[in-house]
Amino acid sequence: MADSNVNQQTKAIRQNGIQKWFEQQKYWIGGVAFTFFIALLGYLLALAPGFSYVGQLACAIIIAITYRQIFGYPEAIRAGVTFSAKKLLRLAIILYGLRLNINVVLSDGLGLLLRDAFVILFAILMMIWLAKVFKADKSISLLLGVGTGVCGAAAIAAVAPIIKSRDEDTAIGVGIIALMGTVFSIIYILLRPVLPISPLDYGIWSGISLHELAHVALAAEPAGDDPLAMALLAKLGRVFLLIPLCFVLIYIMKFRNKGSDESNAKIAFPWFLLGFIALSIFGTYVLGNTIPVSEGMLEGIYSLTTWLLTAAMVGLGLSVSFNDLRTKAVRPLIAMTITSVLLSIVAFFIV
Rank of each mutant, 00 (worst) to 15 (best):
D3S: 12
D3W: 03
N7H: 14
Q9E: 14
A12L: 05
E23C: 05
Q24N: 14
Q25S: 06
Y27D: 11
I29Q: 12
G30I: 13
T35I: 06
F37N: 12
L41I: 12
G42H: 08
A46T: 11
L47K: 07
A48L: 15
F51L: 14
S52W: 06
Y53D: 08
G55N: 08
I63S: 02
Q69L: 06
Q69K: 10
I70Q: 09
I70P: 04
P74M: 14
A76F: 05
G80C: 07
K87A: 12
K87T: 13
L89Y: 03
R90Y: 04
R90L: 09
Y96E: 08
V105S: 03
V105E: 10
V105Q: 08
S107M: 12
S107T: 15
L110Y: 06
L110I: 12
L112G: 02
L113V: 05
L114F: 09
V119L: 01
I124Y: 01
I128M: 11
W129S: 15
V133S: 11
L142K: 11
L143F: 05
L144W: 00
G145V: 02
V146A: 14
G147P: 00
G149A: 04
V150A: 01
C151K: 04
A153D: 04
A158P: 03
P161K: 06
P161F: 00
S165P: 00
T170I: 04
V174N: 01
V174K: 04
I176H: 02
I187T: 09
Y188F: 08
L200E: 13
D201K: 11
G203Q: 10
I204K: 07
S206G: 11
S209Q: 06
S209G: 08
E212D: 11
A214L: 00
A223L: 01
A223N: 03
D225T: 08
A231Y: 00
L232K: 00
A234P: 00
K235Q: 06
L236Q: 13
L245W: 01
C246A: 14
V248C: 11
L249S: 09
L249H: 06
F255A: 15
R256W: 08
G259K: 05
S260E: 09
A265L: 15
F272A: 12
G275N: 10
A278P: 00
S280K: 02
T284P: 01
L287N: 06
G288P: 01
T290Y: 14
V293I: 15
V293S: 06
G300Q: 14
G300A: 07
T305N: 09
W307R: 08
S319H: 05
N323F: 11
L325V: 14
L325S: 05
K328C: 02
A329N: 05
V330H: 09
L342D: 14
S344D: 09
I345W: 01
I345R: 06
F348M: 11
F349W: 15
I350G: 04
